[in-house]
Each structure stands twice: as structure tokens, then as C-alpha cells.
Simulated scan of single mutants.
Amino acid sequence: MIIFIISSLNLYADDVADVPHYTKFAKRQNIEIRGVVRDSIGNLPGVSIAVKGRSNIGTTTDANGKYLLSIPGADVILVFSMVGYETQEIPVKGQNVVNVEMKANNKGLDEVVVVAFGKQKKSEMVGSVTSIKPSELKVPSSNLTTALAGRAAGIIAYQRSGEPGQDNADFFIRGVTTFGYKTSPLILIDQIEYTATDLARLQVDDIASFSILKDATATALYGSRAANGVILVTTKQGREGPTQLAIRLENTISQPVRNVAFTDPVNYMRLANESVLTRNPLGITDYSEGKINNTELGMNPLIYPANDWRKIMFNDRTINQRVNLSLKGGGKVAQFFVSGALNEDHGLLKVDPRSNYNNNIDLKSYSLRSNVTMKLTKSTDMTVR
């Protein structure tokens, strides 16, 4: 009986020796932090709140923008984040209530995609959607369709001509198939159907968002007309605030990427004679040896001309001009965005100063856009385009 008591005392002594270790661990207690997250309009639901460096500790705000979070200490940093707003890091510093006002992040607007019946976040879209930043479409050309090549995966775009006014690029979004070949994509500008020519003359400075639907989701939203994909363009709108003026002046140089190589007159005449004699050794050639030799020696250019018609008829390059002017602003009741543009494109033909007419291409195109939004009631807006 005595031996049993001693054994129990020894076991208790061992436990007591370990007490400081467990006591030290138990002193670390969690702290509850609460607060409200809002922006300039009101409370924000769905804001993510996490402890910096501890991804397993976090929460989100409820429908009223309120949150409650248990954190392991008073010296942690809380990270507040939400799509469309700037991420904020706020140290607790022993506070029990931390209220935050989120600031809008305009750089994240390109992640919002316009679809058939409204707008969705790009991360929530099931289908294949490609968004192109309007700044990437600013190329030295007055034709918007020429800027699509190489800007998005899955788009095939090519030009058949460089003549001003006839330089629209043909493009395919879902490739070329036997069924539905040459079916152009559905083009919607502010939810209104337009042609490829209307898209070509749209000013990049007027575009707020540019999205492309590339798979079967487009057909489900827009029907069979969207079998070759959909191009969705949203133009800029006015905003509450002082009137803002924007102007862009641009001069560009246009020239052929590569010229077709032509032979010179002397070689042309020799090759023409050779082609006749190859078919019929007794055939009559078109050019005599005397004419070929005199042309090669540069004798009397009026009788033996050796003209380079490309240099005579065409310039190496030409200069084009573009001007865009826009105004936007408004108050609480009405906001406006008004823009006007002038594009002037020239051809490469030379004009003889002795002529009293100009047979060169001089294409001038004008455009005017007006988007006015009026707030009729708290829940009803009217837009005039």
C-alpha cells in the first residue's frame, strides 16, 4: 500500500514539471475584431477579410457590410480585398473595432464583361470570353478592324486591300469551317447590331470596353446569328463631375510593307523574245536586237524608253491625319459624353502639276457620337445615344 502511494506521487511530480510548458501555451488567447466595411455609396457585402500571412484565418462581410473575426493576437495586419476596389492593409494595434472605407479601383473595370442581358464579372463567365483593352487598339490606322490581328487568341484577320475606304479586314473568330463559311461575326455596339464597316469606322477614343465571345455560349445568348462569335463593344458614358475635355491630334505615315519586284525593260524584252523562240524556233520575235541594245545603252529615251512606271505613278509614302475631340461630365440628374472625329486618308498616286484635276484618293470621314444618361427615378435611368 505504501509503495502504491509513492508511485502516485512520483507520477504527479512529473506532471507538475511539465505544467510551465502547457501554461505558457494556454496564455495565448484569440481576440475578436468587429467592424463595418463601406464605400462612398454605402455598406459593402462580400468583402474578403484575412490575416496577413495566415491564409487560413479570414471571413467576409455580411449583407449589411458587417464582419466578426477572431484573430490570434493584437499585433496582426488585416487585409481587406474585393474585385473593383483597392486592397487595403490595416494593422489592428489592439483595437476591437476596425471600420474600413474601400476605394474604387478603375483599373479593374476591364474585368467586367458585357453579355446579352447585362454585365458579369469575367471570373463568373462559363464561356470563352476575351477582353481587349481599348489602349491596345490604338494603332496608326483609321480602320479599327486592322487592329484586331494578333490582339486575341483564336482570331484570324487579314486585309485584301490597302486602298483607303476599301481596307476593311476580314476576320473569323471561331475559325473557318465548311458549314457557315464566310459567316461574319455578330457585331454589337451598345447592344445594337452593326456591320463590319460601322465597326471599322468606330473611334478607339470612344470605346469603354471591347469583348469577344468565342464559343457556343454566344449562340445560347444571341441565337444562330452568333454562330461565328460575337464582338461586344461598349462606348463611353458621362460621369458626375466637372466637364472634361480630351483632344487627340495624330499624323501618320502610310507606305507599302513590301513592293512586288518587277524586271527592267531590257530583261523584259529579252525574256519575251526567248519565250517566243522556245515555243517556235522559227517564230517572229517582238523586239529586235537593235532596240534592246539601244535601250540598254540609254540612247534617245523618246524612241527607246526605259521607264520605271512605279516611280513615275506612285509616291513611296503618304501622310494621313486624324483628329478626335470629346467632352464628358454631368450632374446628379444627367450625364453626357459627346465626341467628334475627322479622319483624312490619302492615296499614293502622284498628281501631275500640269493637270487641273486630282485623280488621287482623298478620303475624309466624319463621325459624331452623343451618349446622354438621365436619372428619372432612383431605380430608373434613360439613355439616349
Rank of each mutant, 00 (worst) to 15 (best):
K236N: 10
T235S: 06
Q244W: 06
A246I: 03
P265H: 07
I212A: 08
R201C: 08
G223F: 04
A218G: 11
R258T: 11
S254K: 02
N251H: 05
V204P: 04
I253Q: 12
P256G: 06
Q255G: 05
T243K: 13
S224C: 02
N267R: 11
I247E: 05
R248D: 11
I212V: 15
L213G: 10
T252N: 14
S224Q: 10
T234A: 12
A218V: 02
R201A: 14
N251L: 11
I231F: 13
V266T: 12
P242C: 00
F262K: 06
I207N: 13
S254N: 06
N267K: 13
A227R: 01
V266D: 13
T219C: 00
F262L: 14
R270Y: 01
I231P: 06
F210W: 12
I231C: 09
A208E: 15
L213Q: 14
G241K: 11
T243S: 13
V233C: 09
Q203I: 09
V266E: 09
I207F: 15
N267Q: 13
S224K: 09
S254F: 02
A246W: 05
T217G: 15
D215H: 11
L271E: 15
L232D: 01
T234I: 06
V266G: 07
L202R: 08
P256K: 03
P242A: 12
S211W: 00
Q203P: 08
L221S: 13
L221V: 04
N259V: 06
T235L: 03
R201F: 14
R239D: 08
T235V: 04
I247H: 04
T252C: 04
A218P: 08
E240W: 10
N251K: 13
L271G: 06
E250G: 04
P265I: 08
V257H: 10
V260S: 02
T217L: 00
S209E: 08
S209K: 13
I247L: 11
T263L: 03
R201I: 15
F210M: 15
T219K: 01
A208F: 02
L245N: 09
K236H: 10
P242F: 10
D205L: 01
R239W: 02
I231M: 13
T235P: 05
Y222D: 00
P242H: 07
S209R: 15
N251R: 12
S224Y: 01
R258Q: 14
N251P: 04
